[in-house]
Design a protein around this nucleic acid. Structure first.
Lengths: 188, 188
DNA sequence: CGACATATTGAGATCCATCAACCAATGTGG
DNA sequence: CCACATTGGTTGATGGATCTCAATATGTCG
């Protein structure tokens, strides 16, 4: 599946200059400071954020508790998918966990660019497919792995995660309590 | 989100005749009998199956046990997404749970049609987005709902499911044991 | 009817959550 | 620079949700 990311990057690299220019035209580089919100609940997700450097997370509130649903690392595209796609108010937040650098793409501008440059539709499709496969993988984890296995898999995929994401968020992301995570770690 | 399905149908309804013809050219109607496999493990998923009538399921094997990952009803598109997208061998099966009618679309033919008729790329994107939002919803269920809540939600979304899907498959789909499902049902 | 698949029920074990106490590191105001 | 609050993490005790195994019941179909 990592291979598919390379395919996407190759696809971008081989775009004609006009399409590439159109793509670059709708993106801006931007910085956020640790703790900043890239998106707040009830806002419409009007931008996608490609992480250049740093870590962010996506979460929502359930009875006042934060449920972390996704962690974003370098090369990940941070959006609230549903809000972005439907241009509806989001029930999710996106927050920088460190000072981060991102390239911001405006939804409306990108849609217009897609109309003018059809290859961008293909690109959009490929990126969506990639996210979809990732989601299926994550669903598999919840369906078939216990807490320890999920933690080990995460560690395996992101060996340096402990340096940038606190255990509270990791536990929430794994769908377990902080205490359980702590005990899992103690046992290893 | 149901609204998005309508948007997709409206999009299809308003396609120009040439594109529409191209779309119809790559699909065939077909029947399967109860128990038949639309896709087997290790096969490449070379077709998508739009369910016209009947019910099917997708599952994989884990230590010889069948884990049902998705149930397909009328208007659903039955594919092993990853296998279909990457044209890799599938680790999933797709099986008819009743005698079903589907429209089969050939992957390669559809890709070619997309090259000739760009609006089909947009259609593909929309359908993928729809599936993606569905996946996010399902992930939310695993992340935040207990077994009883998941069952009630499923019943609510598919009131007639008990007539066509046996409890064994429903339990597996919900990520719980058959016994637990039986007890949940007894309590209601 | 007999046979096989499907579902229910009971008992015990296991995983994980919750609540509470405690600890360590960090930061802040006086 | 110290006292103390705050945040993040650990550890212990207990209970609840769910699993597993086994026995029983209820189909369903040749």
């Amino acid at each position: 599946m990592k291979a598919y990311l390379e395919k996407i990057n190759a696809f971008i690299a081989h775009l004609d200059t006009a399409t590439l220019a159109a793509l670059e035209n709708v993106t801006v580089e931007k910085q956020f400071r640790k703790g900043d919100y890239l998106l707040q609940q009830d806002e419409i997700c009007r931008y996608s954020f490609l992480i250049i450097k740093g870590v962010a997370r996506k979460f929502y509130l359930q009875n006042g508790k934060e449920i972390t649903t996704e962690l974003f690392f370098t090369e990940d595209l941070a959006v609230s998918f549903r809000s972005y796609t439907l241009q509806n108010p989001s029930h999710e937040f996106i927050q920088a966990l460190e000072n981060i650098t991102v390239t911001v793409t405006d939804y409306t501008a990108f849609q217009k660019a897609k109309n003018a440059f059809p290859k961008l539709v293909t690109l959009d499709l490929m990126m969506t497919e990639y996210y979809t496969m990732w989601l299926e993988e994550r669903l598999f984890e919840f369906h078939s792995l216990d807490a320890t296995q999920r933690y080990l898999k995460l560690l395996n995929e992101h060996p340096h995660i402990l340096q940038s994401v606190q255990l509270t968020h990791i536990a929430s992301y794994l769908g377990i309590s902080l205490e359980t995570l702590s005990r899992i770690r103690a046992k290893i």
